[in-house]
Design a protein around this nucleic acid. Structure first.
Lengths: 212, 212
DNA sequence: ATTCACTTACTTACTAGTCAGTAAGTGTGT
DNA sequence: ACACACTTACTGACTAGTAAGTAAGTGAAT
């Protein structure tokens, strides 16, 4: 995987030589947004390129022109979503330390107003564990990265230095957030995501502190 | 639920009038097992009836004869899996009270040796949040039932009577178990499911007791 | 003049579901 | 005990739909 050279840059239609045209970037973005919609609503397997294309105002061959293949589109979409998320943080500042934990809770709160995004994430991560799924590596890498990051921050915040304990706690926290999303999607009124995540995080930090 | 009357009673091929033939039950079971395999490995959408049929030693039309449609097969498979799980408990005794919590932890432990089952559950529950997915109701009902049951047991065990608190705790516990499965499937060595679930449950009960 | 961003027009590959037919039962009446 | 009427459990062939990918071409911008 992975280059997509210069992050989301065009290239797929054979090797590109000239500069892309002016409107190209926004057309590609329209396709990526449509993909988020379609794959989010139907999953990758059942999501059809024609529908993505339609929503972006072109034919499915046009989409293929930009991203080379359905799999290429998926990977580009996943990266695009990450970039968007990062860009959403004020001044693009990377959040560090305690603020990161607050950021996680804030994100959960925001997510209750962005059903589509949550659905896309849940469906795709579920699908990603199937044999040879194109998003498998993405989710594996992403989860591991998040785990390490959260473990680090939990260590800072609690003063606890037990590495395994910190990793387990991070894993646990991620599991709660992901697991809650599915339950929430199945029945939004039955699950108060922000409250539960906030709770869990407080408990976790408290315990790590006590054991430090 | 669950008639399971004569275990997985046939019917789909129009309304059945005569008794099913002798070998029928085991043939149907072979199909269900194959479905667990195939849908587990590829998901419902990508899983093909021909492959299910092949693994069960018949043609895909034969599968359709028994279950009427692909969707019918899915639903039957889900019910079959539930029945199997219940049957796995010694003497079919329904586990109640504190023992149920232990049973949950035991199941998690067992699951580390049954990757296929875990994968099937994770993939299907992820898929189930997509629009109009045939397993949507199944997972919704199942989750709600589990939530209520766990909340009840937690109440018994901790003496806590705060209904919302108990429900949130149950939701949280389910989220951890489900979320861990995905992480574990993505990277089995990175996640010690039984340890983390055991931990979480102890913490939960302890806290509910303290707040009682 | 050439390249980019597409479209139109297919092709190839599957896949769920239908249908007609067949061999092997099942149950009843005699 | 046996034949008759009927059912079940399939198979094989086919249909109709869908979906990804390809090839050739067209107009606009550089």
């Amino acid at each position: 995987m992975v280059d997509t050279t210069r992050a989301g840059a065009p290239k797929p239609a054979a090797e590109r030589v000239q500069r892309p045209q002016a409107r190209t970037t926004e057309r590609r973005e329209a396709v990526l947004k449509a993909a988020l919609n379609v794959f989010g609503a139907r999953g990758y397997n059942k999501g059809a390129l024609v529908e993505v294309a339609e929503q972006a105002g072109m034919t499915h061959a046009g989409v293929l022109h930009h991203f080379g293949s359905k799999e290429g589109l998926l990977v580009a979409m996943l990266k695009y979503r990450d970039g968007e998320e990062v860009a959403g943080i004020p001044e693009r500042a990377q959040v560090e330390g305690p603020a990161f934990l607050q950021h996680l809770v804030d994100t959960v709160e925001e997510n209750t107003h962005r059903r589509g995004v949550v659905q896309a994430y849940s469906v795709l991560s579920g699908e990603s564990v199937t044999d040879g799924h194109p998003a498998h590596d993405y989710f594996q890498t992403r989860t591991e990265g998040l785990r390490t990051k959260i473990a680090g921050v939990l260590g800072e915040v609690s003063g606890n230095t037990d590495a395994q304990e910190l990793r387990d706690s991070a894993t646990s926290l991620i599991a709660i957030m992901d697991g809650l999303q599915v339950q929430w999607l199945l029945d939004p009124d039955a699950v108060d995501m922000p409250r539960i995540v906030g709770r869990a995080m407080d408990e976790l930090v408290e315990r790590l502190r006590a054991e430090a």
